[in-house]
């Protein structure tokens, strides 16, 4: 009886090892295929084309990092900072004027803005090179009064 159990354990262990080796081999083959994808250089044009063809969930990305919407500032001159699609054209409308700036390759953009006293509505619209657009509006209050 003990001998039979011992044989069963050995056979079970052997079969387990064989199956595990099979799984390990299959995983290794998959890994090797994926490593090849990393090494293969992707031509820039192809990559750009792929990006253009990828449907963006909401068109052009646009976020205003600073100043925060409905914030209060104590200085007349501020720098508006935002992030959008790389190299997008950004039009900015504010009480004291308007600006057109271009986002850098990372999508960052800045614009120096002169505020009027009180409430200032700032409209920021970003366009990618295909004409897709996104718009954000923020309000910033300029006051020297202590709040």
């Amino acid at each position: 009886m003990r001998k039979e159990i011992f044989i069963a354990i050995i056979i079970g262990f052997g079969l387990g090892l064989a199956i595990t080796y099979g799984i390990w081999k299959a995983n290794r083959t998959l890994q090797s295929n994926n490593t090849q994808t990393i090494i293969t250089p992707t031509p820039q044009v192809q990559r750009d084309s792929a990006l253009q063809n990828t449907p963006s969930p909401s068109g052009v990305i646009l976020g205003i990092i600073d100043p925060v919407d409905n914030s209060i500032v104590k200085t007349e001159n501020i720098t508006l900072k935002g992030k959008t699609t790389p190299q997008a054209q950004v039009g900015i409308l504010y009480g004291g004027g308007e600006k057109i700036v271009e986002a850098d390759i990372d999508g960052n953009f800045t614009a120096d803005i002169t505020l009027s006293g009180g409430n200032n509505e700032i409209t920021v619209t970003a366009f990618d090179k295909d004409g897709n657009q996104n718009r954000k509006i923020i309000n910033v209050t300029y006051t020297t009064a202590e709040i």
Binding site: G12, L15, G16, T20, I23, W24, N27
Partner: peptide, 24 residues
């Protein structure tokens, strides 16, 4: 024993995750 061996040893090698190198 066969099932135990399979579960213990196979779990040593997790299935390969999603390909994250796709530009899309």
């Amino acid at each position: 024993l066969l099932t135990l061996n399979f579960l213990l040893l196979a779990s040593r090698f997790p299935l390969f995750a999603q390909d994250t190198t796709d530009p899309n």
